[in-house]
């Protein structure tokens, strides 16, 4: 196999990987804070807010991501009355689906993290006179992030792989270009290249999260 031929496969795939990485970055950057807000909503003493958040999490985790993707990309415009205002670019619609889906998972992770924090931490903060906000920001959150880092890393790697679902809603990404070359040239090499690129991204994430874990270590 010539170098030129290899590059002719790799370059469109790298182009596709751009969409993969872009989706990943946008989804992770927005779904983590959104997930945290959801956790707060679930724990809210205002019951309707809590129930609404719980229902949202239940639906998002209880239905396939692929179904949600299809719904956001192809389903929204078909809704009566409001449908015509919900026609987005396919990449945008798919990204919204990813953000909402992953925020539900992150919300569950953060909820677990908050539960794991000893109530003595709240009591110590209270007797020292810290406000609720100061307690949350200076005492609880730093501990929660440390506890939840491993599951967050896990979800992040899942997200990288789930970006391949874009294939199903016809948004060109890494796997799409691999499949195109496979069909065109009857070769399976693009699948290996695609696997290599996914592994490379996953490896990069692992390194970053391991570094964060070490840096935030306090045990």
């Amino acid at each position: 196999m010539s170098y030129e031929y290899f590059m002719s496969m790799l370059i469109p795939m790298l182009e596709g990987a751009k969409a993969t990485v872009l989706l990943f970055v946008i989804a992770i950057v927005l779904s983590i804070p959104l997930g945290f807000l959801l956790t707060l909503a679930v724990r809210s003493s205002i019951k309707p807010i809590s129930y609404l958040a719980q229902t949202f999490i239940y639906v998002m985790r209880g239905t396939p991501l692929l179904l949600q993707l299809l719904f956001f990309v192809f389903g929204l415009p078909l809704l009566p009355v409001i449908g015509e205002y919900l026609v987005f670019d396919r990449f945008v619609a798919a990204t919204i689906a990813f953000i909402l889906n992953y925020s539900a998972y992150f919300a569950e992770i953060f909820r677990g993290g908050l539960i794991s924090i000893d109530k003595g931490q709240y009591e110590a903060s209270q007797v020292l006179g810290l406000s609720k906000w100061q307690t949350t920001v200076r005492v609880i959150l730093p501990q929660m992030f440390r506890v939840t880092l491993p599951p967050i890393a896990n979800e992040s790697v899942s997200l990288v792989k789930d970006t391949a679902l874009l294939y199903a809603v016809a948004v060109p990404e890494l796997l799409h270009y691999a499949q195109t070359v496979v069909n065109r040239d009857f070769t399976i090499i693009p699948f290996f290249i695609a696997a290599g690129i996914y592994l490379l991204i996953a490896f990069g994430l692992t390194v970053v999260f391991k570094y964060l874990e070490r840096k935030l270590q306090y045990e």
């Binding site: 009591e123 007797v127 020292l128 006179g129 100061q134 005492v139 730093p142 045990e219």
Partner: peptide, 29 residues
């Protein structure tokens, strides 16, 4: 604020150094 409390389980803030544990409340409160 006129009272201080010491717990059976210490309840130090595990993510802060000893000095930071002491200084958090004077700084914030």
């Amino acid at each position: 604020s006129k009272m201080g409390m010491v717990f059976q389980q210490f309840n130090l803030f595990p993510h802060l150094t000893v000095k930071q544990n002491l200084e958090l409340a004077p700084k914030l409160v």
